[in-house]
Design a protein around this nucleic acid. Sequence first.
DNA 1: TTATTATTTAGTTAATTACTTAAATACTTA
DNA 2: TAAGTATTTAAGTAATTAACTAAATAATAA
Lengths: 90, 90
Amino acid sequence: MKEAFKALADPTRRKILDLLKAKDLTAGEIADQFEMSKPSISQHLKILKAANLIEDEKQGQYIYYHLNTTVFQELISWAMSFTKGDDTDA
Amino acid sequence: MKEAFKALADPTRRKILDLLKAKDLTAGEIADQFEMSKPSISQHLKILKAANLIEDEKQGQYIYYHLNTTVFQELISWAMSFTKGDDTDA
DNA sequence: TTATTATTTAGTTAATTACTTAAATACTTA
DNA sequence: TAAGTATTTAAGTAATTAACTAAATAATAA
């Protein structure tokens, strides 16, 4: 989760996650949605992957990225522990 | 939410939230839990407050801090939108 | 009023982060 | 094999962040 919190702090990375919510995309397709160099997006993807928020899958010369929902589930539990009626530890 | 994501990226700030989950505390009581200067903790409290994750209340010479759960609720909704079963199109 | 306690604000510095361009790697196609 | 496309890695830099100490503000108590 530690890595995820840091990964989620950046608006570009949150937008990447939003894009992947709609459908799986290649690194290039993701980069096309931003006015930013491809290496920069590649770095962001690397950080999201290290945080287990996304996974990649190579298909020929392309690398497809897709969401990994497990950390989002953990995040839900974590946030719920701060709302009334839930005593669960972080 | 933008501010909240950045606020949550720091482990010291997440620990402050954990402490406030148990009970309301003064700035000094919070600072006592860390091996860090009081001004540093004060800055973290300021950031958490700007993110609407906590609120303060002055009582005499003390300032009590307590959780504000509204942004946590928003965070839950946000994270749920990434998990299966919350398909907005369904 | 003066001193004490609680806390924040200001100013500075070191570490981290988010970009950039250039080069490297990997796959595909002619 | 050589050229082209997709993507990452490397190296460098500017902006941001998180810490510190010192000073300021505010309330309390002597």
